[in-house]
Structure formats: structure tokens, C-alpha cells
Amino acid sequence: MSVVVETKGLRKAYKDTVAVDNVSLKIAENKIYGLLGRNGAGKTTLMHLMTAQQLPTSGELKVFGENPYENERVLKRTCFIKESQKYPDTFRVKDVLETAADFFPGWDREYAYSLADEFRLPLRRGMKKLSRGMLASVGIIVGIASRAPLTIFDEPYLGLDAVARSLFYDRLMEDYTEHPRTIVLSTHLIDEISKLLEHVILIEGGKLLLDEDADALRGRAIRVSGPAFKVNEFAEGRKTVHRQTLGGLVSAVVIGDGDGGDRERAQRLGLSSETVTLQQLVVHMTNASNANPERKAEI
């Protein structure tokens, strides 16, 4: 399995904030990654670093085995779609698609126009006159039709309605199946895309909180509730990421082994239990790390 992106101790500091703090991770070829975290967690900065649109303060960064900065071999295999993408004032939708055709070696022109049709984009309309949703559609089409071996989407659906978002997920998966590539999806709508993800990277406060196979995370955490002493017994020696009390009753989200043994143990203790979705797990982990900034979550 070859590695597409590798960072070691990557750091990006601005005057008074650290946006990316000592992040070490590997992104493997032809997998779909979810880059999750709250707004301002450092996701966008991390993606800007990976595409050499910003420069790291310190640490190591390799994309396709090389430093991406001013590196044509790396950059022409990379496509980064971001919400803040700017376009020349005089450009129409068609000009953007034609320029993208020129910039991205893997571009499929026919497919791009068929996508534009499906997303109902007026090709002759100026970019300045597009609605927010249409602007998002342009980015999505460029991202899919570029077929770049490393394709990164930063919250690409802002302004899109549910129908168009679903169309995006469908077309992305379809094209990915036919033309496998590495895809990084940054989002906070975890529930919507979680089924598409093979791997999850969670960052909070610029730090890496989680770097795990998505399926391994599903069902790994369980919520148990019952009398406090029993919940405590169950949670002993495990990480609790969330805890609520109601009178003498306690409900806690506990990270387990994910093999089903946990639920049985909870049942034996007379606790009621339910598994936790990926979205809930991510929310709890993010909150837990805020409450406890020193501790890196370990699962």
C-alpha cells in the first residue's frame, strides 16, 4: 500500500495562533478519507499545507514522496476544491471548466459537461452572478472531472440543497469506483458522508485526535446507563468520553473494544446499553478533548 501524503511533526503557526500543531499522519493511496473536526480546528490549514498553497512553519511534509512546494510533478496530480476558491471577474462557468481542462492532466471534458448538465449549471453565466449553491457545484465538478490522484474537498457542498448533495455523493462514488484515487473530504456533516469513508482523521485545536479505520470506529463506543456504581464498574480502566447524570442515574459513553463483548458485559451488570454512531463518537471525542486539552485521545 503506497503512501500519498506523509507528515511528521507538521506545524503551522501564525502570529498569535497555532493552526496545525505537531501533526504526524499518513494518507494511503486510493482510499477515501474523512478529515473531521469543528470549524477552526485546523482542517483547512492542513489542506492548504498539503497542496503547498501555504507553507509550514516547521515539520516534514511529503506528497507523492516529494515536497509539494513549487513541485510540478506533485501539483499536477493534486486537486484542491475549497469554498473560498476565487475566480477571475470576467470568467463564465465555461471559462472555468475550460481552464481546469487545461490545468489538470486527467480532465474528462465530456464528463465535466455532463455533470454541469446534471447540476443544472448555466455554462454562459458569469461566475460573479452565480448563487452560492451554483458556485459549490462548479467546485464539485472540477473536483470530480479532474480525476487527480489526490483530490481534496474542503466543505464542498455549502449552499447546496439535499438533492444536489446526494447527487454529489453519487457521482463521486461512481467515478471513484471507475477511477480509484485518493480522496480527502473535509466536512462537519459527518452523518451524510460517513458511509463513504474508509478512514477517519479527526483534528481539534490543530492537534490530531483520531486517525482510524472508519469501520473500526463504528460500534467501538457504547453508551451505558444505570446506577452510578455499576456504570463506574463498567467504565473502570476505559476511557469515558461523555458522562451525564440524572438523579442517581448515570449515562456514559465509553470507548470499548468494539467486538460485542462490551454490550454483553453491560447486560450482565444490568446496565442498558446502545452503540454510538460515528458522528456521536466524533462529537463526544471533540468535547472530551476540549475539557481535557492535555490528553490525546487514545483508543
Binding site: 513541485n71 476558491q85 481546469a100 490545468f103 489538470f104
Partner: peptide
């Protein structure tokens, strides 16, 4: 202002 962020955002080198 018109084209630098556009081109860099679309994976063009600064030199190019």
C-alpha cells in the same frame, strides 16, 4: 488579484 489565487488554487506553480 484577478488570477493568482485562482491559478494557485487550481494547482499551478507560482513559477508557471
Amino acid at each position: 488579484a484577478q488570477t493568482f489565487p485562482f491559478a494557485i488554487g487550481f494547482s499551478i506553480r507560482r513559477l508557471d
